[in-house]
Design a protein around this nucleic acid. Structure first.
Lengths: 217, 217
DNA sequence: ACCACAAATCTTGTATACAAGTTTTGAGTA
DNA sequence: TACTCAAAACTTGTATACAAGATTTGTGGT
């Protein structure tokens, strides 16, 4: 992996985990000192981060870690729920046994993760792994990757929501029911479940009340 | 509009209209002479074009206009057909009168465009305008813009298909029927129509036979 | 104390010299 | 003629000096 890719991976990770808080200034000179590299390749990295909405570039002023855009979150959730409904319907008819085992294994690991010390971190990774597997098994990995490129706001939104422990149990249960309905080919029940699974919290005011300084106005 | 934005717009247009054919070399020095600007801002433009799949950058070798990736075309068509089915269903229930007029006007202009000298060009723009209006009227402009960012392969694919005059009449007719079913709230007929409207030609071998040197292997 | 305004100090944007890798060229040799 | 292999001519990648704009600071005047 090239140095630029490493730097980008590092910065993306710090932004997604909110180690770098929304609004933080990312100065080219400061970063070039931190990573011991000149401004030119760093500018390449910042350009790409900007195109993927990780940061906002204000010409001749500076670069800020972007604030969480709830409009983007709502639109991505809608996109995913529409797509995943269709994908589940497809998988109900075409899912192979090997795929079922793969999904079950992810759920087992997720169950085990709940009571680990870094529960949230592990849980989020496995949540992504579950949904990514569904896309991949349906031959739609391309679209999963497409969505991932516009995911900064959604990922951070979800992370803040999951700080509440009780959410983890709820999500695991829903995952298990999704797999259940799919294998039993109860497609009619899937729609409502997916809708709830992805969409439930978007209208709650939890974020606005507790993390208002992270949110785009 | 900044100089960089102008250059980007120019290059994008030339690539999408196939003025710059897939495989064409875009050398930094040649472009910097053409646009009378140094390599640095040009590299910014090329970086962005690469992230949006307009070009492929081979480090230390060169930059090529990307070949048309049929896998990407199929995935985008699937994405659009799934999304647009849902959007039509929504609009059947919520479309306001003003929206109907707006869509009708686009179709009138499209009808008039068929026999113009630059029919294909005008027709494609109005085709986009029609579908964009549907997204916008459903409050999903965000997703339309998201799709547009991954559209290089699909746009060029469609352009080559539309070289056949008879396609234009067919598309216009389907647009008219879409609007018709929507206003009559015949949602059951919409699914199949959208599917056909977007998906029809993907399995034909027309492109592979006539433009094999534009296609990614 | 407060205001105005200019200068200093930040920021990113651009041009350019040089580094490093790849491809092409062509001379020398069998 | 055909082949080898090194040198030259390309390509993009990086570092850096300087340009240009935005912000902050601080000083002089009231």
């Amino acid at each position: 992996m090239s140095i630029k890719e490493q730097i980008m991976k590092t910065l993306k990770h710090e932004i997604l985990t909110l180690t770098l808080k929304p609004g933080t200034i990312l100065s080219e000179t400061v970063l070039s000192e931190r990573f011991q590299i000149s401004r030119t390749p760093l500018r390449d990295v910042l350009k790409q981060l900007s195109l993927e909405s990780y940061i906002d570039i204000y010409p001749k002023k500076g670069n800020l870690v972007s604030f969480i855009d709830l409009e983007s979150v709502e639109q991505i959730i809608y996109l995913r729920s529409v797509l995943e409904k269709e994908i589940m319907k497809y998988l109900s008819a075409h899912l192979v046994l090997k795929g079922v085992h793969e999904l079950k294994e992810i759920l087992d690991r997720q169950k085990a993760a709940i009571h680990e010390v870094d529960a949230t971190e592990q849980f989020l990774n496995l949540d992504d792994a579950f949904h990514a597997a569904l896309f991949r098994l349906a031959g739609r990995e391309f679209l999963w990757n497409l969505i991932q490129q516009s995911n900064v706001h959604y990922v951070r939104y979800r992370r803040l929501h999951m700080l509440r422990q009780e959410k983890l149990e709820e999500i695991l249960t829903e995952h298990q029911r999704i797999l259940e309905y799919m294998t039993r080919q109860e497609t009619d029940k899937l729609d409502a479940l997916i809708h709830h699974h992805l969409r439930e919290d978007i209208n709650s005011l939890y974020l606005q009340e507790n993390f208002s300084d992270y949110i785009k106005v």
